[in-house]
Design a protein around this nucleic acid. Structure first.
Lengths: 245, 245
DNA sequence: TTTCCTCAGTTGTCGGACAACATATGAGAT
DNA sequence: ATCTCATATGTTGTCCGACAACTGAGGAAA
């Protein structure tokens, strides 16, 4: 099958799911690093020390350290020990502010997204191939046709995702999509997706159409402006700026 | 002490460092996920199956899975199994193209950085406090004074880092610095930091000064333009566009 | 039919052992 | 006294076996 059937698989929707020990230990270790102000290059306590300290088995300590390792927070060296990583060598970027869902944090992420996605629109206008242009047109047409809230949300995601694809830059695409998804998750968590008024739906559609037209006709500057306006309006519609104050 | 003394700690400069088994297994598992086209929600083979398949102990398999887990690629559920995560729920962003150091990949990252850091300059012009403005001026002055290659590289990093700070947006700051650092690492790895000609040093200084002046005098648009020009010139000086072809 | 129990399967945790590696120590040679 | 090298010790990496906690399914009993 080409499309995955979600209902064929177990759902993990709202599991309270008791926290794993290793996660807890990882959290406490990273807290210790911050609390004690360990500088890059400083050595962590040995595994056996951590075992005594937290009263867990070495397996748990090792999984916890493995977690910190793949977050890039520490580096382990066989025969020597575990050392705090220089932030400059950290290999991953994590958006941790979103979990809180506070308006201030959301606004901060939006500020970044505004810039990134504006650039994406510009690149897409330059580089989108015919198939991608057509897909954008189709998506806007579908948005115009539907009334359903859930469907239009999916189309919205697909629209921004297609633009990200059309940049022709894998790195740009991945980050754009990462930001977009994290932001939507945060928003969804913050407010239970209050249904929008119909006249707002019309304005959103118009904004999307403007972005689409500019990209399809290959006008980078126009695409940038349209995307920027769209994102600014999204912030306004969500009432984020008022909520942040 | 305010500045960390690097030389007080063991160095891990150019360790060939034999790859860890768990890393290797993690890589092969994630390859399998892609190769077999496992969709979100699909179940991975059980740990015992993976143990047979890769011929390693369960500890190694567990550390490998822990790695994938903290990358957000999979989710483990006690008593049920390990399942592929919906990409939309992935919590980290990783820039993996840079390891190769190929000019094409570098150029892709630069394209993203250009947009992000341009925005950062604009925000900094709006929000930098007096101390940050002064620091920028000091850094440019120091650049003008020094001849040393290493020192001027450090000043360069500090300059861009200060701008990132001055955005007053933690999320923006972290990503800007992440990008900046990853890019420098990649460049350093690619070419052994060929010393620049003195007249180029003068041009770099002028570009930095232009950015600094615009931020200090609080002109966002001018700051954006100056930063964009600077980054474009960096790409040109590195000869990336020619190398990519 | 419904409910509850048992049971097999899976991941989570535990404890011990040895291998691989890095560093310090000390004996012996020069 | 100084240098060299084997040894000892400490650390992380890997392996092994066992049990605990949890899930899902199937069967027994009401």
């Amino acid at each position: 099958m080409t499309v995955h059937d979600l209902h064929a698989h177990p759902r993990f929707d709202s599991l309270p799911r008791r926290p794993r020990l290793s996660q807890e230990v990882a959290r406490r270790i990273s807290e210790r690093i911050r609390a004690e102000g360990l500088a890059p290059g400083d050595q962590l306590p040995t595994e056996s020390r951590l075992v005594e300290e937290f009263g867990v088995s070495r397996s748990v300590v090792r999984e916890a350290v493995a977690h910190l390792r793949s977050e890039g927070l520490v580096e382990a060296h066989q025969g020597k020990g575990v050392f705090v990583t220089d932030p400059a060598r950290r290999k991953v970027f994590r958006l941790d502010a979103n979990a809180s869902g506070r308006a201030r944090d959301l606004l901060a992420i939006f500020e970044l997204r505004r810039e990134v996605e504006t650039g994406a629109a510009g690149l897409a206008a330059r580089r989108a191939d015919e198939a991608q242009r057509e897909r954008l047109r189709d998506l806007v047409a579908a948005m115009a046709a539907t009334q359903d809230e859930a469907t239009s949300a999916e189309l919205d995601i697909a629209f921004h995702g297609t633009i990200a694809e059309a940049t022709g830059n894998a790195c740009y695409r991945d980050f754009t999509q990462y930001l977009d998804r994290q932001l939507r998750l945060a928003i969804e968590a913050a407010r239970k997706q209050a249904a929008l008024a119909p006249e707002q739906a019309a304005r959103i559609l118009a904004e999307h159409r403007a972005v689409c037209d500019a990209i399809v006709s290959g006008r980078p500057n126009k695409a940038r402006k349209a995307m920027r306006a769209h994102l600014d309006n999204v912030v306004q519609r969500l009432g984020l700026e008022e909520a942040a104050r």
